[in-house]
C-alpha cells in the first residue's frame, strides 16, 4: 500500500527536525504507544496498540531512522509484529521552508502480512490516513508545548 501526503508545522525547519527526532515526542504521539525504549542509535523498540478495520492488535515494533540528512530528509522504517499479522512500513520524509512555517512531506509503502491483510485491506488506506493525521497533529501539539 502506497502512502503519501504532507503536513505543515508552524515552526522552522530546525524545530520540526528536532521534534521528529525526539524520543519523548515519538513516545507521546505514536498511536497507542505503551512504551518506547532506545535499542541503539536512532533505533527504538515500541509496543503499539492499534485497531485497524475493527481488529485490535498489540504490535511489537522496531523503529529505525536512517539515511539522515539533517534538517532535510530521513527514512523511517517501522516493523511490527502482532497476533493479527505483521506490518512493515518504510517512509521517506523531507522538510521544506514555506513562508513562516515548514512543510513536511512523506512518501512510503506499508505492507501488511498475515490474517490482517485478508480482512482489513479495504479499510487500510483510510485507516492509515487517519492514524498518520492524528500523529502529526499530536506532534504539532508537542511543538507548541501543549499536550494532546
Amino acid at each position: 500500500m502506497h502512502v503519501n501526503g504532507s503536513y505543515t508545522f508552524k515552526a522552522d525547519k530546525q524545530a520540526v527536525y528536532d521534534l521528529m527526532m525526539s524520543k519523548d515526542a515519538l513516545a507521546h504521539c505514536l498511536p497507542g504507544c505503551e512504551n518506547l525504549e532506545e535499542i541503539g542509535e536512532d533505533a527504538y523498540r515500541a509496543t503499539l496498540k492499534i485497531g485497524i478495520a475493527g481488529i485490535k492488535g498489540t504490535y511489537t515494533c522496531t523503529i529505525r531512522t536512517t539515511e539522515k540528512v539533517p534538517l532535510e530528509t530521513w527514512t523511517l522504517t517501522i516493523e511490527g509484529q502482532a497476533k493479527t499479522g505483521n506490518v512493515k512500513g518504510v517512509g521517506r520524509f523531507s522538510l521544506a521552508d514555506a513562508d513562516d512555517s515548514t512543510e513536511l512531506t512523506y512518501d512510503g509503502d506499508a505492507d501488511i502480512m498475515g490474517p490482517l491483510a485478508g480482512i482489513g485491506q479495504r479499510m487500510l488506506a483510510p485507516a492509515s490516513r487517519t492514524i498518520i493525521g492524528k500523529f502529526f497533529e499530536c506532534m504539532s501539539g508537542q511543538l507548541s508545548g501543549s499536550s494532546q
Binding site: D111, G118, Q121
Partner: peptide, 14 residues
C-alpha cells in the same frame, strides 16, 4: 492477492 502475495480477499466481507 496484493503484490506481496498477501490475500486481500480473505473474508466473506471482501
Amino acid at each position: 492477492y496484493d503484490d506481496q502475495g498477501q490475500l486481500v480477499t480473505g473474508s466473506l466481507m471482501d
